[in-house]
Design a protein around this nucleic acid. Structure first.
Lengths: 129, 129
DNA sequence: ATTATAATTCGCCAACTGGCAAATGTCAAT
DNA sequence: ATTGACATTTGCCAGTTGGCGAATTATAAT
């Protein structure tokens, strides 16, 4: 079995599903993929075909590209000419995070990152003593 | 059998191969895919998995994205020149917020929206009494 | 504790992918 | 026409995918 990049795909998908508070059955309904199959994918017993991967991308809040790259079906992007995001190396906004935030007005979004700043400075201070 | 978009994929691939004046065997060598399989793909008897499609893209001079879209594995990209992707309907994430968050690892980003969720439920509860 | 109910996992299996080797087709040179 | 050298197609089959229904496990609710 291929232990390379496909390896953690299941975990990632499960994480994302749980973060989105969907059950396997709900995701199954939204994606049009059997729940049993989804379960096996999540625990790494099956590797989803492109067809299946495509179906679950949007219900989970992934860009198709993103998920395909994650699955190792596309190589980590040269991406489009205009650049934009460095692919999956952290430095980007997680899709789940983005969906949650996008439901909030900008003022709330800013308040949230304000909290982040406060927490970081607290952490920094307490790390020093 | 699916007669939709996958239908002409084989033709397109064969055309492209001929245009590039490659034989099946040469393409086979470059792509690391058996010639017999390639032949069947070209005449529409088999539908290549993502793994296979990825391997033949570059020897044929395709962008992976392009070929995947052609195969119907990715939805046709509206794509973008200057614009970022419009994936999340409704409101979007404020650019300032996005840049701040994108400097943090995903785990931190998620923790942050976790806090948001908590605050909202607190607000909801206290609004009820 | 005891049901009731929803969620997940398992067993089974039809359908499909993709490689190998053999068969067939193509074409130039003799 | 025949041979030889490649190119393509076919037969076969092991390995996977993915759906369905049953069995099991988690979660409430009384």
């Amino acid at each position: 079995m291929d232990t390379s990049s496909r390896n953690n795909l299941g975990e990632v998908i499960r994480q994302q599903r749980v973060m989105t508070s969907l059950t396997l059955q709900e995701l199954s309904a939204k994606a049009g993929v059997s729940a049993s199959h989804l379960g096996r994918i999540e625990r790494g017993e099956r590797f989803p075909s492109a067809r299946i991967l495509r179906r679950i991308a949007q219900p989970l809040g992934f860009e198709e590209n993103e998920l395909f790259t994650l699955a190792g079906y596309l190589s980590a992007h040269p991406l489009s000419v205009g650049e934009e995001s460095p692919p999956y190396r952290g430095r980007r906004v997680d899709p789940y995070v983005a969906t949650v935030l996008s439901r909030e007005p900008v003022s709330v979004q800013r308040a949230v990152v304000g909290i982040l700043t406060i927490l970081k400075s607290i952490a920094e201070i307490s790390a020093k003593e």
